[in-house]
Nucleic acid binder design. Structure first.
Length: 474
RNA sequence: GGCGACAUACCCAAGUGGUAAGGGAGAGCUCUGCAAAAGCUUUAUUCAGCGGUUCGAAUCCGCUUGUCGCCUCCA
């Protein structure tokens, strides 16, 4: 299968080839565990899971790394703003370590519920302080840093002429906008590599370093951990589009100035989940964790949706496009998945080799869509058409569903736990037999009256072919 | 102020130069005592608007309008 990916670095779709044959190093920026992940965060992890599955389908062995950022970062590059971990700890009256552990566990639970494949490694920032210090020292030795007294070590972006290229930054424009906090930085785009704890202020997380007790800057962890686990040049680095401008630009600067080698060969970024506009068409906007109000997977589950409903919802839009979240949209996804399962559930366990020319044709159409920069919306369309193709044998159809689901990850080859049938109130139970008798006697008035009675109690009667009646809650 | 993205049917959404996938919802038909379920059929001469390039444009170019994002932590 041929795989092309949109590479942000080139602003173009490019055929994917790994640096080393058969193996792919994939680094995905993970969560900062100071709060629950919201469904917008999760959309990106779903996209990365689809990428990983596509790579595996293309025959690669994938080394997949997702970091856990458990160090608090300030909310700006200057000394202003609050540390998010410490803020979370204060909010909940617990230690930052407890906070990190609690939200990391919550994150893993969402990960599993969404059927995301387990990464090869989940490195934590706090477990890699020495690696981060070593990287900063290397940059210092090579002359890319400067120290600001009582503040910290900064990366001097003016020493890296290619700095603006990746994000196509307009440095002049940044200065003109004058919305960049300068503090004691030499250039507006300079960023902290190590922050020295302010004298007198006791932080819950701090470490000794050659520059004094403090904590690492908020971009250096990804470079340090990615290069440690995947080598100096990654095949693919992923994240949300918001990371392009600052985080990934800074990662490139510090990594490439240290190694002299390209940091990542393909940069693949997922689009935003937006909150749908209201009825007037206004009010759409990014779902933002730091803004406070957000929807989590748990919130959806409590409202009766499944994690797979949300996964399907993500599958219906291309990963690079904005996706508007609305409950109406989620309802559509749920209904679609339900209808899909009605057709695939009877095929479970019946998979046979899909070797006919017809079957191979469907498979290649499906893989072609996936290989074309992960066009899963189109792949879903192909699945639907395949299920309606009268020229396929049942076993072949089942085999194709199984093959497609390896990419989709919707769990179509596993029977869902049956929905528990709503318990009928005791007083209604005898009426079922009475209605069966009425129907046998063609007493339709009585039969319908009983149905109305059920309806009033909140149940819908469904007549089966064999004369018995089933029911479900309204 | 600077940079950028998007605009396709009632809704969601593919398609990026060769004559509009797919899904949801709705409608009709079949089946059924009636329902439900299921099956079948059906729903854009048209892609925000206006110009241009071309034999040919939803796709390329220009302008206009609208929505959104980034420029500050953020998936």
């Amino acid at each position: 299968m041929q795989l092309s990916l949109y590479n942000t670095a080139a602003r173009a779709k490019q055929p994917f080839e790994s640096l080393n044959p058969g193996v792919v190093g994939l680094y995905c920026c993970g969560p900062t565990v100071y709060h629950f992940a919201h469904i917008g965060n999760l959309r990106t992890y779903v996209f990365e899971d689809l990428l990983r599955r596509a790579l595996e389908a293309a025959g690669y062995s994938v080394k997949h790394v997702v970091n856990i950022t458990d160090v608090g970062h300030l909310t700006s590059d200057a000394d202003t703003g609050e540390d998010k971990m410490e803020k979370g700890a204060r909010r909940e009256g617990r230690s930052v370590w407890d906070i990190a552990e609690y939200y990391a566990q919550a994150f893993f639970k969402d990960w599993k519920a969404l059927n995301l494949l387990e990464p090869t490694a989940w490195p934590k920032a706090t477990d890699h302080i020495p690696e981060q210090i070593a990287l900063i020292q290397d940059l210092e030795k090579k002359g890319y840093t400067y120290f600001v007294e009582n503040d910290g070590v900064y990366f001097d972006t003016s020493k890296f002429p290619r700095y603006p290229d990746f994000a196509k930054l307009d440095i002049e424009g940044l200065q003109a906008g004058s919305r960049v906090a300068m503090a004691d930085k030499r250039n507006p785009t300079d960023f902290a590599l190590w922050k020295v704890s302010p004298s007198g202020a006791q932080r819950q997380m701090e470490w000794d370093s050659p520059w004094g007790r403090g904590f690492p800057g908020w971009h250096v962890e990804c470079s340090a951990m990615a290069m440690k686990l995947l080598g100096e040049t990654l095949d693919i680095h992923c994240g949300g589009t918001d990371h392009i401008r600052v985080h990934h630009t800074n990662e490139i600067a510090q990594s490439e100035c240290s190694t002299g080698k390209p940091f990542a060969r393909y940069w693949v970024h997922g689009g935003w989940l937006l909150e749908a506009p209201d009825d007037s068409g206004k009010g759409a906007g990014k779902m933002s964790k730091s803004a406070g109000e957000f929807v989590t997977l748990d919130v959806l589950i409590r409202q009766g949706y499944s994690a797979m409903d949300y996964r399907y919802f993500c599958l219906t839009a291309h990963y690079r496009n904005y996706l508007n979240f609305s409950y109406q949209g989620l309802d559509t996804a749920r209904d679609s998945l339900r209808n899909l399962r009605k057709r695939t559930d009877p095929l479970i366990g019946k998979a046979a080799p899909a070797n006919s020319g017809r079957a191979r044709e469907w498979k290649s159409r499906f893989l072609e869509a996936v290989g074309d920069d992960l066009n899963f919306p189109q792949a879903l369309g192909i699945l639907n058409l395949m299920l309606k193709d009268p020229d396929l044998l049942e076993g072949e159809r089942a085999g194709l569903v199984a093959a497609f689901d390896k990419l989709l990850g919707l769990g179509l080859t596993v029977a869902e736990a049956p929905v528990p049938q709503a318990d009928l109130p005791e007083d209604l139970k005898p009426l079922l037999a009475e209605r069966a008798a009425a129907r046998a006697a063609k007493d339709w008035a009585r039969s319908d009256a009983i149905r109305d009675q059920f309806k009033a109690a909140g149940f819908v009667i469904k007549d089966n072919k064999d004369g018995t009646a089933g029911w479900s809650a309204i």
